[in-house]
Amino acid sequence: MAQEITLTVNGATRTNQVEPRLLLADYLRSVLDLTGTHVGCDTSNCGACTVSLNGDAVKSCTVFAVQADGADVTTLEGLASDDGTLHPIQEGFWEKHGLQCGFCTPGMIMSSLDLLSKNPNPTEAEIREGLSGNLCRCTGYHNIVLAVQFAAEKMNSGS
């Protein structure tokens, strides 16, 4: 039996009828067409599906859409400015080549957003621990760390 949910996604209010068993990841991808959120392992290990739920990074493959009723959700698509200016974290991944195949990148960026919002000056060890819920099968971790460091510096300088 479908239930109505209303939530804010990337600043816009969305109301939909959903089956309770619809996962938040599938709601974002299939109902809202926001395919920047990737589904990798579908078992809450890889972190490719990470989105921000009320300011906290969560694995959207392990949250039902109905649980997000009333919540504020931000996906990768919500980071860049309307004029296309990249968020400093996206810019960091671009500048430091923080991706190879790119599949894990949306989740890496959303986890980095959670990390930097709570710890604006992380050490390298804190970055690696903070992103330990995100797996990169290309093993591109080195440049991902550099990307987060780039973003932290840029966000702290306010430019």
């Binding site: 809450s44 972190g47 969560v58 694995k59 986890s111 959670d114 990390l115 330990s132 819920g133």
Partner: peptide, 9 residues
């Protein structure tokens, strides 16, 4: 426990 995303839930 687990990782940051899981600790958030």
């Amino acid at each position: 426990v687990a990782d940051n995303q899981i600790r958030n839930r």
